[in-house]
Design a protein around this nucleic acid. Structure first.
Length: 290
DNA sequence: GGGCAGGTCTAAG
DNA sequence: CTTAGACCTGCC
């Protein structure tokens, strides 16, 4: 049954490696050169990419159309966005390199929690924490025969588990932040819905009321959890990029309607230039250790 | 082995 | 309003 799949035509501006290697999502793992698997919103999928097709495992047409195509943001025309960047040379260069990236529409709560965990942290450890958290407090949603996959725990479960238990997942000083976020979302069932109704700036201010959420985490949550393309996360890399390529101030695109998309192109472009990759193939990793 | 990791809080000017 | 330090942990 694991080998059952169906195919769709590969969308334009779609590169599975770029999508999952640009740091927007912590729950997908590279299992082969052109294949990834992961869990989102309680659903497991395996996806492999060829020249012109996507092979989709453990899902069906209905779920692909109803859920995954939205998750992969297939309704957005990224070539149009890239065209709008054409007056910015650096950005155009970055988009040429990273134009296969799509902003994943992730679950808002999971995004909030994940980016709190991401602060002052490295990717392998972030992924480890989220995995342990899901294994302990999420629901088993898929078993491929030798591995089980778990959904991300909801806010209520983490709140009831308590700060000490969250700390026990080796979250470090972030435990109290995660607990505070869980508390905010659990105690106010409309916390995230209300956030979604606000304009991006007000939404950010609302998220900032959660302990452990600063500008960067708020922007990431909005960009990846609320599909706010105008949210512009500024981290150490983006700071470096701004200093290096925009010493006299950023172009209008960096605070425009698609600032977040621009940010992802620049971020991925610059990190690749510096040889920083996220999802290594397991065998590659082992070879490196020699 | 020790610096560093897609930050944020707190305390102090 | 701006800016140092501190902060858990474990990867590279």
């Amino acid at each position: 049954m694991e080998n059952r799949y169906f195919e769709v035509k590969k969308p334009k501006n779609f590169d599975i490696t770029q999508i999952f290697d640009c740091g927007q999502c912590f729950r997908f793992d590279r299992i082969d050169e052109n294949a990834y698997e992961g869990v989102v919103s309680g659903k497991y999928i395996k996806i492999s990419q060829t020249e012109d097709k996507l092979k989709l495992y453990n899902t069906d047409e209905k779920e692909w159309d109803g859920f995954w195509s939205d998750f992969f943001d297939l309704k957005t025309d990224y070539s149009k966005i890239i065209k709008s960047f054409s007056d910015d040379k650096i950005l155009t260069e970055a988009a040429e390199f990273a134009g296969g990236i799509r902003i994943l529409k992730q679950d808002a709560w999971e995004a909030l929690c994940s980016f709190i965990i991401s602060q002052n942290n490295n990717i392998p450890r972030i992924k480890g924490i989220i995995r342990r958290m899901s294994e302990k407090y999420g629901k088993e949603i898929y078993d491929d025969g030798n591995k089980k996959y778990y959904s991300f725990p909801d806010a209520k479960t983490l709140y009831l588990a308590g700060e000490d238990e969250i700390f026990a997942l080796r979250t470090g000083f972030r435990a109290k932040y995660i607990y505070d976020a869980a508390k905010a979302v659990f105690q106010d069932p409309h916390f995230l819905d209300d956030t979604a109704k606000l304009d991006t700036k007000s939404a950010a201010e609302k998220l900032l009321t959660v302990k452990g959420v600063g500008n960067k985490v708020a922007a990431c949550t909005l960009l990846f959890g609320f599909a706010r393309y105008d949210a512009f996360p500024v981290d150490v890399w983006v700071k470096r990029i701004l200093e290096k390529y925009y010493p006299h101030g950023g172009s209008g695109h960096l605070c425009g309607k698609y600032a977040g998309v621009a940010q992802q192109y620049l971020f991925y472009y610059e990190r690749c230039k510096n040889n920083v990759y996220i999802n290594k193939i397991p065998t590659e990793k082992q070879e490196k250790r020699k």
